[in-house]
């Protein structure tokens, strides 16, 4: 991990449907920094503003106030927006929202071609991405992605983002609907990508998953940040009930730890 900030939020706010009867403030004066090579989890209960926050990183939503810097640069014109989206890859929760090509191969190289890669180079990168994730490129390349199972579609969606090698990766609820095997593979992939120097941001409600892989955690509640710091100290210092208030379950290992401490103190008292 380096000490260079790759993402900087300074007093950022966002309001949906401004000046309409549906006006909703989704984020209010959010400030934080994410360093290069960090794995950061964004947590909070439903409607706390997590998805809004990650969408602003690659300018799918434009902040109503404040400044957002990615790699030290403010991307606020139409000209450099493609450059920003090449830097920040976003993996959405539902692969069905992005799959449209007639074959897996075409689907995997779509983004690469859009970002100016040559077909051969895009194909090479797609194969590498599949190898990274343990997805058999040769087996699936000519298959229609609509005929794949849910898990396979998710793999195609992830590989199609990895194939253009973004520096920052954002995962929106990556663990939703995954079985244990899928969860282990995903964990391995994230750690591998992080080992290759990628900065990773993930939204998740799975506290065990977050506890195991993230360095830092940003917790949102009703559009404001309630915690921004090391994952370990959050898991250690927040009680089970406080975490439940924030839409998280206390990780198993910390519950065991709490019980052990309680037993020790009881013994000492005796």
């Amino acid at each position: 991990m380096e000490n260079t900030p790759v993402i900087e939020f300074d007093n950022v706010s966002y309001t949906y449907n401004r000046k309409t009867p549906f006006e909703t403030r989704a984020l209010q004066n959010i400030s934080f920094q994410i360093l290069k090579g960090e794995i950061v989890a964004v947590c909070g209960s439903t409607g706390s503003g997590k998805t809004t926050l990650i969408k602003m990183i690659n300018r799918l939503l434009v902040n109503t106030s404040g400044t957002i810097k990615v790699s030290g640069q403010v991307f606020d014109s139409k000209l450099n927006i493609k450059e920003l989206r090449k830097k920040v890859g976003m993996i959405f929760q539902y692969p069905d929202h992005q799959i449209f090509e007639s074959s897996v191969k075409k689907e995997l190289i779509y983004a690469g071609l859009k970002f100016g890669m040559h077909t051969k180079h895009a194909l090479k990168k797609a194969k590498e991405a599949c190898d990274n994730y343990g997805f058999d490129f040769n087996k699936y390349k000519n298959r229609n992605p609509f005929e794949l199972s849910g898990g396979e579609k998710r793999k195609v969606a992830i590989c199609s983002i990895l194939a253009y090698e973004p520096e920052i990766l954002i995962f929106d609820e990556p663990t939703a609907g995954l079985d244990n095997k899928g969860l282990i593979a995903l964990k391995e992939l994230i750690l591998k990508l992080n080992g290759q120097g990628k900065t990773i941001i993930l939204i998740s409600h799975d506290a065990d998953f977050i506890d195991e892989i993230s360095h830092k955690i940003i917790v949102l509640k009703k559009a404001v940040t309630v915690y921004n710091g090391k994952t370990e100290s959050f898991m250690k210092n927040y009680s089970k009930f406080e975490m439940e208030e924030l839409g998280l379950e206390k990780p198993f290992r910390w519950i065991v730890e709490e019980k052990r401490k309680l037993q020790l103190s009881q013994r000492e008292n005796l």
Binding site: K86, F92, Q98
Partner: peptide, 12 residues
């Protein structure tokens, strides 16, 4: 949502 997914993959 689809538009956002494609935009983040470079679609214009």
């Amino acid at each position: 949502k689809i538009m956002e997914a494609q935009k983040s993959r470079g679609a214009d």
